[in-house]
């Protein structure tokens, strides 16, 4: 396999509030392969958005290394650094907050075009902006260009956000919950458009979401990484991971999610947690941070040291999991029979 387009290596990130240091990301290691569909999944506070910002260079890690096309981002200077920043773009979650209300759509799309000298003059900018809007199916283009964000619907705004991310011809796009704010009926259209960009423009898309079903749809031919309280707890090929989840947290999640099918969702077996309380990031439990809630907790093992991602010895899949009992090949009874 060729070299990954991006690599995160031992990334830590904490935020300071007052006197406390909050560890938001701990020891994240992740390869992003060129043109793969990669999805990061987790609940609020798991660090998925922070990971996205670090990938896009909008936030420096507290420690650890980021590689873009094999080169450590920290060592990039001048033109090389600009090239990296231009090549990795982030689409924000909220299309109501991320577009400047005082600028027209043309203003916000032409700015990066002119700033990075990707076009010459207003005329060139207008032509390119129109092409970009066409690409994200925002038509009639001429109408949209001179509108302000408040004149557009949520779905249209999110398309503008995507078009804006495309202005700099990026090779990686990090899409953070990019469809969660739009209505169900137009969500899939937006997602499909995003997926098509990979084909049409050769961009690698990292999709961040809290919705496992959406992750499954997006990354069906790719990979999913499941995060919990700042750590990657399971990562692997989507189809294997959904069919045969390994980490107790992933199993609990999959069993807990309601499904849009009355008979199925009402007969689904739910795994009971030992505790429903999510630990605070400032008071993380020792060892595996899921152990106080984990139904398969092994005393003296899970609360002693932190498990690392690895493929279980007895496994014939490629899914990596950070859980001691699973790695030792212990069979966890998923559903009581």
């Amino acid at each position: 396999m060729s070299e990954p387009i991006m690599r995160l290596e031992g990334i830590y990130r904490s935020f300071r509030t007052g006197r406390t240091l909050i560890p938001v990301l701990q020891d994240i290691n992740l390869d992003i392969n060129e043109l793969e569909f990669l999805c990061l999944v987790g609940e609020s506070g798991c660090g998925k958005t922070t990971t996205g910002k670090i990938l896009a260079g909008l936030l420096p890690p507290s420690s650890g290394n980021i590689y873009y096309q094999g080169r450590n981002v920290r060592d990039l200077r001048g033109g090389d650094r600009r090239e990296y920043r231009r090549s990795v773009q982030l689409i924000h979650q909220d299309p109501y907050a991320s577009l400047n209300p005082t600028q027209t759509i043309f203003d916000m799309i032409s700015f990066p075009l002119l700033h990075h000298k990707l076009v010459s003059g207003q005329k060139g900018a207008r032509k390119r902006a129109a092409e970009l809007l066409e690409l994200v199916d925002l038509t009639p283009v001429e109408d949209i260009l001179d509108k302000y964000p408040h004149q557009l619907s949520g779905g249209q705004r999110q398309r503008v956000s995507i078009a804006r991310a495309l202005t700099t011809n990026p090779s990686v796009i990090v899409a953070d919950e990019s469809v969660s704010m739009v209505d169900v009926s137009i969500r899939i259209g937006l997602l499909q458009m995003l997926m098509n960009l990979r084909e049409e423009l050769g961009v690698t898309i990292v999709f961040i979401t809290h919705d496992l079903a959406l992750a499954k749809y997006f990354a069906w031919d790719g990979r999913i990484g499941v995060m919990y309280l700042g750590r990657m707890v399971e990562v692997g090929k989507t189809q294997e991971l959904i069919r045969d989840p390994q980490h107790p947290y992933t199993r609990v999640l999959l069993s807990a999610i309601p499904e849009p099918d009355p008979e199925k969702t009402r007969t689904k077996r739910h795994i009971q947690l030992r505790s429903e309380d999510i630990p605070r990031l400032t008071e993380l439990p020792p060892g595996c941070s899921f152990h106080p809630r984990c139904p398969w907790f092994v005393e003296g093992v899970c609360d002693k040291s932190v498990p690392q991602l690895g493929i279980p010895a007895s496994s014939n899949s490629s899914v990596e999991v950070a859980c001691f009992p699973v790695q030792e090949g212990e069979k966890l009874q998923l559903y009581e029979t």
């Binding site: 619907s153 137009i186 959904i242």
Partner: peptide, 22 residues
Amino acid sequence: LLTSVPKLDHEQDLLTSIKGAP
């Protein structure tokens, strides 16, 4: 609406969205 929500089963979803906006 029903054909635009992904499911969590082991099959690939065939989804279509409703065109236009409310």
